[in-house]
Computed example of a mutant assay.
Amino acid sequence: MMTGLLPIFAFAAYLLATGSVLMRLFHPKGPHFKLMFSAGILGLVLHMLALTQTLFTPAGQNFSLINVSSLVCWLVTVAVTVTALRTPTVLLLPVVYGFAALMQIATLLVPQDLQLQHFEQNISLLVHITLAFLAYVVLTMATLYSFQVSYISSRLKQKDFTPVSQYLPPLMQAEAIQFRLLMAGTVLLGLALAIGVVFIENWLAKANLHKTILSALAFLVFVSLCWGHARKGWRGRTAITLTVIGTCLLTLGYFGSRFVKEVIIDRLG
């Protein structure tokens, strides 16, 4: 009973957090931050409790597609919320809270598959997956920041100083955070790939080959971007395009194949 109610309560909390930003986005006093953070943190707690019940089972860890998606969503939402306590991220908050709300609906509507893992028996796999998750979360944040940088840049070019502008970070600060996240995420992704190559026996097996290739391609894109920014001063549209390409490759590498297998093929079969 409680397992089914937790996502509903989390959805309501996330929806309230999203609405508290959007309804006062262009208000002279800005969004109602106390209400937003209170609702957002409540949503995170409820989301975590619901996720814990479905992820950890007596038979092992259930890493089904919906559970993994919910876990990544929770990690991104936590990261953006914590960042927002110190850096203005008013444009990112309704995006992550809104997506987290939709994820709660998905957990209720999408049938749960059973994809058991036993990480206590394979520490190397646990480290690899942990690093891969962290890399994906950090690089997703970098992608969100790249969109925010693009928006701030366009507002400055148009000399648009609407009330929401005062709740955005300075362009240089937003760009600096974007590239710090890119660098950190690229390092984490490189470590995850290195551990996979060295310690995971079926790294190049047919079932994992597409994931390996797409992850490696994404890593090369991010390495090229970090090098280009440091040596050639790449920024703006070039940085945004390469960031989105790299993140899409990572998303396809893991979620794409599992979505086709678990949601489309298994349902039709």
Rank of each mutant, 00 (worst) to 15 (best):
P28C: 04
V21A: 01
V80T: 08
R24H: 13
V72M: 13
L75I: 06
V82R: 01
A79R: 00
A50P: 12
P94G: 06
I41G: 03
G60A: 07
V21I: 14
A39M: 03
L55E: 02
F37N: 11
H27C: 10
F37Y: 15
T57H: 10
P94F: 03
L49W: 13
W74M: 05
A84Y: 03
G30K: 08
K34V: 11
T57S: 13
K29C: 11
M48N: 11
M23W: 14
S69W: 13
A79I: 02
T89Y: 01
L35P: 01
T77S: 13
I41K: 03
P28G: 08
P94D: 05
V82C: 02
L25R: 13
W74I: 00
L92V: 03
A59P: 05
V80P: 11
T81C: 00
T54D: 11
S69R: 00
F63G: 02
P31L: 06
I66M: 12
S70M: 07
P28L: 10
L91T: 15
F33I: 11
G30Q: 07
Q53L: 15
G60I: 02
A39E: 00
F56V: 15
T52E: 14
Q61W: 09
L22Q: 10
I41A: 05
V82S: 06
C73E: 08
T54R: 15
A84V: 00
G60L: 04
L25T: 02
V82A: 09
A39P: 02
V95H: 01
V90M: 07
L35H: 03
I66F: 08
L44S: 04
V82H: 04
N67Y: 02
T52I: 13
V78N: 05
R86G: 09
L25G: 06
W74P: 01
K29G: 13
V68Q: 08
K34Q: 12
K34I: 04
P31W: 10
V80D: 07
V90R: 12
L92E: 01
M23T: 15
R24I: 05
L85Q: 11
F26V: 10
N67E: 09
A50Q: 12
A39W: 00
T57N: 04
V21M: 09
L46V: 04
T89L: 15
V72Y: 05
M23N: 13
L65N: 08
T77R: 06
T77E: 00
L92I: 08
T83Q: 10
F33T: 11
V72K: 00
P88M: 04
N62V: 06
L44R: 04
L85T: 14
L46A: 09
V95D: 03
V68S: 02
K29P: 01
L44D: 06
N62T: 07
K34T: 13
P31R: 11
S70N: 09
G60P: 11
L25Q: 07
T89P: 00
F63M: 15
L65D: 09
S38L: 11
L25N: 04
T77L: 00
I41R: 04
L85V: 08
L51Q: 13
R24L: 04
F37C: 03
V72H: 12
T52P: 03
T54H: 13
A50G: 12
S38R: 10
V80Q: 10
G43F: 05
L46E: 13
R86F: 14
A39Y: 01
L93W: 06
H47L: 08
A59M: 14
